[in-house]
Amino acid sequence: MSETVASQGSAPQAIVTGQGVSFTAGGRQLVSEASLALAPGTTTILIGPNGAGKSTLLKLLTGELTPSSGSVLVDGEALSSIPGWRLACQRVVMAQHARLVFPFSVYEVARLGADGVGRALSRQRREVLIGECLAAAGVLELASRRYQTLSGGEQQRVQFARALCQMEAGRSVCERQVLFLDEPIASLDLCHQLALLDMARTIAARGVAVLVVLHDLNLAVTYADHLVVMDQGRIIVQGAPAKTLDDALLRQVFKVDLSLSRAPAPGLPFLLPQQHRLSPAA
C-alpha cells in the first residue's frame, strides 16, 4: 500500500484521504478503487445517480464500513487504528436517515452531539454551545418539542444541529475537523436547503473539510469547491465544478439529456433537464 499517494495530490494537507478504496458486499462491488482527498477549507460535493455508491463511499470514509481493499487515512493515520472518542472529536457525520424510538426532546437530541465529545467542557459552556447550535440550525424555537412530533424537514435540521454541537464541542480537542453530510437537504424546503448549504460553506471557510452527498446538480455546482461524480461504484471524474461537467458526461452518468449553460452572474454552469427534443423553456 503506497503511503506516498497522499502527498502528491493537489491537496497535500488533506485531512481524510481514501486510497484505492473498494468495498464488496454480497458478491457485488459497491465501490471500486475510489481515491479521494478531503482538504481543510474545501467543500467537496459527491454526486451521482441512485445506487452509484455515494453513501457507501461516505460510510467507508467515516469508518462505519471497513474497505475490502485500499485504505482510509485521517491525518496520515489509518482510520481503523484511531480510538472512537478521538475520531469523534475530529470527524462529524450527519447520516441520511435518523429515527428515534423514544420521545427525546429536540434539546436532548442536540445535546447527544456534545455529550461525549464535550466531556471536558463545563456544563454552562456546553449548554451555551447547544443553544447556539440549535439557533444556527434554525431550530431553537423547537427546543422543548418532542423529536417525533416534528416534520421530516425539521427533524433533519435538528440532526444538523446535533452535528454542529459535536463539531463545536470537538473543536476544543482537535482543530483539524471533517464534516460528512449524507443528503442533508433531502427533506428541506428551498429556503432551508440554501441556509444549510450556506452554513456548510461557512464551516468550511473556518478550515473544516466538508463532504456533502447531494442530488441537486445545480446546488452541487453552486456550492462545491471540488466536485466528485460517481457512477456504478467508480469515481468517474473529479475537480473544480466548472471544468468537471460536460453534456456527454451528464448524459452518460445520469441518463438524462442535459445541456450546460452559464449563469449570468458568477459564470457558474447551471442545468435544465430537457425533454427529448423539446427546446428548453425560458
Partner: peptide, 8 residues
C-alpha cells in the same frame, strides 16, 4: 452507526 459516529 450514529452512536459510533458520536465516539461511543
Amino acid at each position: 452507526a450514529e452512536a459510533y459516529h458520536l465516539g461511543i
